[in-house]
């Protein structure tokens, strides 16, 4: 009995020994790589803060409306964004390199698939960001137009425009990532088809009918007394 226990213990210790001998250098290397990556990330973040400071990127982001999109308070700083992006990119690279050191099938597959997917992820992310910006911009334009034209429910119209544009961006991003392509495409076709049908019906009702319809809810739109005032600079 004791012999058996002793053999089991020895086997276990041997396996542990073997595993330590096999994986410890890799683990140490991985930890070292991650640590180096962390140090590099911290340095690069510091460096980016210094480099970007004084550049006009913050102003550009604020003026282009991107800052307000990402951070409605308008306090987003490009410097911080760039520095944090560089930091996390380096940390990610460190982790991937660390995983690659082990050389197992699983880690290799993880690294490979990530490297393969990364450019697509970046492009998809940019498409989504662009879509969100465009949706925000055109939604606001629609809101102002609808308010000035006295259309009913201007905010809903603005949201509709925003959602439509963001949806189109999502479809394009999904296509980029090869993710549920057919589902998104079908939804997109249904949506566009529906929009075309709605537009056709609206035209079919004729401008006069639409005008009367809107007029019922918001008062007369044409020939009202203050037009003469509005027409004079």
């Amino acid at each position: 009995m004791i012999e058996i226990l002793k053999r089991i213990l020895e086997d276990t210790l041997q396996r542990l020994n073997y595993q330590i001998a096999t994986y410890l250098p890799s683990l140490l290397a991985a930890v070292a790589l991650t640590l180096v990556a962390y140090l590099a990330a911290v340095s690069v973040r510091w460096l980016v803060y210094r480099i970007f400071k004084g550049l006009t990127i913050d102003k550009f982001l604020r003026q282009s409306g991107v800052a307000f999109l990402v951070d409605p308070s308008g306090r987003l700083r490009a410097t911080r964004l760039a520095a944090e992006s560089a930091y996390w990119c380096l940390i990610l690279v460190g982790i991937l390199l660390g995983l690659d050191v082990f050389g197992t099938d699983l880690t290799t597959r993880i690294v490979q698939s990530f490297v393969f997917l990364l450019p697509k992820l970046i492009v998809a992310g940019l498409i989504l960001l662009g879509g969100a910006w465009l949706g925000h911009y055109l939604g606001r334009s629609m809101l102002v137009w609808a308010v000035n034209e006295n259309l009913p429910t201007p905010r809903r119209l603005a949201v509709l425009v925003r959602v439509l544009i963001i949806f189109v961006a999502v479809v394009v991003a999904a296509d980029q990532l090869d993710f549920a392509r057919s589902v998104f495409l079908a939804a997109f076709i249904i949506l566009v088809g529906g929009a075309v049908l709605a537009a056709s019906l609206a035209i079919g009702l004729s401008a006069r009918g639409v005008s009367r319809l809107l007029g019922d809810q918001n008062g007369p739109l044409d020939g009202s007394a203050e037009r003469s005032l509005w027409s004079h600079l």
């Binding site: 008062g219 009202s224 007394a225």
Partner: peptide, 18 residues
Amino acid sequence: IAVNVERMVNSFRRSTAD
């Protein structure tokens, strides 16, 4: 010049929320 004050004020009031 005829002016419809009512409509102008209504337009302002509705727009403030939107």
